[in-house]
Simulated scan of single mutants.
Amino acid sequence: MSRFRIERLVVLPPAEAWRRLTDWPAHGARVPFTRTTVLTPGRDGVGAVFTARTGVGRFGFDDPMEVVRMEPPGPGRTGVCRLVKRGRVVRGRASFEVSGTASGGSRVVWAEELRVRGVPAALDPVLAAAGRYVFGRVLDGLMHD
């Protein structure tokens, strides 16, 4: 299983960092050739389901995800969101954490554990490096718009 973790310190207060991080369509807008569709409109917390479709034309794959834990940050409390990836191609878990800093900003952590069908385990380090790069750019874009 490929694993990666990204951490950023941002100037946004925790509530705003959380709002941006859990704006699922905004994620797709930041990943090349990807569109995110929320399949449970109006449901933002546990049980929300969305799919990230990556590809060009007919060639691509779906990455369906479900929110299994959603606890927004609060005074003295770290916000935690956990997702389960249940696709044919991508399976695994993702998590986001947002906590306040002494300066009034936020510490944001994005972690994933995933398996990509057809990719041998020997390539897990390459997949993790690609994940850190791509999703690091996504996170930076979400936090700095």
Rank of each mutant, 00 (worst) to 15 (best):
29 A>Q: 09
90 V>F: 10
12 L>Y: 05
65 M>T: 08
81 C>N: 07
134 V>I: 12
17 A>N: 08
121 A>T: 13
131 G>K: 01
82 R>N: 11
7 E>A: 06
78 T>W: 09
35 R>L: 04
22 T>A: 04
47 G>N: 09
117 R>G: 04
101 T>Q: 10
57 G>N: 01
86 R>D: 14
51 T>D: 15
110 W>I: 14
128 A>H: 07
105 G>W: 07
57 G>F: 11
12 L>A: 09
91 R>I: 13
111 A>T: 15
85 K>E: 14
128 A>W: 00
116 V>Y: 05
58 R>V: 00
110 W>Q: 10
145 D>A: 12
60 G>T: 01
25 P>H: 02
5 R>L: 15
92 G>R: 06
41 P>N: 01
108 V>D: 11
44 D>N: 00
52 A>K: 08
64 P>R: 11
93 R>C: 03
143 M>A: 14
19 R>A: 14
5 R>Q: 13
1 M>G: 10
30 R>Q: 13
79 G>V: 06
141 G>V: 04
46 V>I: 15
141 G>A: 13
125 P>Y: 09
118 G>Q: 03
33 F>K: 00
72 P>Q: 12
35 R>C: 02
48 A>P: 01
28 G>A: 06
127 L>T: 15
98 V>F: 08
97 E>R: 01
36 T>P: 00
14 P>C: 13
6 I>H: 00
39 L>A: 04
115 R>G: 04
122 A>L: 15
107 R>T: 00
104 G>W: 04
79 G>P: 06
46 V>A: 06
13 P>T: 12
109 V>K: 01
139 L>C: 09
41 P>S: 08
6 I>C: 04
44 D>H: 01
112 E>Q: 14
23 D>G: 09
60 G>M: 12
27 H>I: 09
131 G>L: 09
113 E>D: 15
124 D>K: 04
84 V>G: 01
99 S>C: 13
84 V>I: 12
86 R>K: 14
105 G>L: 12
58 R>L: 14
22 T>V: 15
124 D>I: 11
144 H>V: 14
42 G>W: 05
101 T>W: 10
126 V>G: 02
121 A>I: 13
143 M>W: 02
90 V>I: 14
86 R>L: 07
27 H>M: 08
8 R>C: 12
11 V>Q: 14
61 F>R: 12
94 A>M: 13
16 E>A: 08
111 A>N: 03
120 P>K: 10
141 G>H: 08
138 V>Q: 02
119 V>W: 06
50 F>L: 05
104 G>M: 11
68 V>D: 07
107 R>A: 03
66 E>Y: 03
142 L>A: 07
62 D>N: 05
17 A>Q: 08
119 V>Y: 06
71 E>A: 11
134 V>A: 10
24 W>Q: 01
69 R>Y: 05
65 M>W: 00
28 G>R: 03
33 F>I: 00
98 V>G: 13
103 S>H: 09
120 P>D: 12
129 A>M: 14
9 L>T: 11
91 R>K: 10
45 G>F: 08
53 R>F: 02
12 L>T: 06
58 R>C: 02
90 V>E: 10
98 V>W: 04
22 T>E: 06
64 P>A: 05
135 F>G: 03
75 P>A: 12
72 P>F: 07
33 F>S: 05
126 V>P: 00
112 E>I: 01
15 A>F: 03
82 R>P: 03
